[in-house]
């Protein structure tokens, strides 16, 4: 298991933004606009979250004719748990109990 690493502020923002409406499928450009994060930062975050099972992905099935289908994302069960943990952690002191920390593999 990789050593504990604190997620970046942008990663936390992405996870919390997606947790606001967990059933809604989001797409990359939309998230960039919502969070004012550049694509060069957003996509690595999405790739890492998906790699670790925090995001599920699908392709848009009802794209209008002439427009390519979008890749859509939403949080999985572990992703929601992570969001809950991050939201809770944001309210506790930084030097809180170590046991409250989640194992985080380099996101």
């Amino acid at each position: 298991m990789a050593p504990f690493r604190r997620p970046s502020a942008q990663t936390i923002a992405v996870v919390l933004a997606m947790a606001e409406s967990p059933t809604t499928w989001r797409y990359g450009y939309e998230l960039c606009g919502m969070l004012k994060v550049q694509a060069g930062s957003m996509y690595p975050i999405l790739i890492r979250l998906a790699d670790r099972g925090f995001l599920e992905t699908t392709w848009e099935s009802d794209a209008p004719v002439g427009r390519p289908p979008r890749h859509l994302y939403r949080l999985t069960g572990p992703g929601l748990a992570l969001a809950t943990h991050l939201a809770t952690k944001a309210r506790i002191p930084v030097n809180g109990p170590a046991t409250s920390r989640i194992r985080w593999e380099g996101v």
Binding site: G28, Y29, A39, G40, Y43, R70, H71
Partner: peptide, 23 residues
């Protein structure tokens, strides 16, 4: 493919350059 599909939705030329460079 996902990033390419998203670029197709970005209308403004300057934003397209920024988005494409990041992707």
């Amino acid at each position: 493919v996902a990033m390419t599909a998203e670029l197709a939705q970005v209308p403004d030329r300057r934003a397209r350059w920024r988005f494409a460079a990041g992707c």
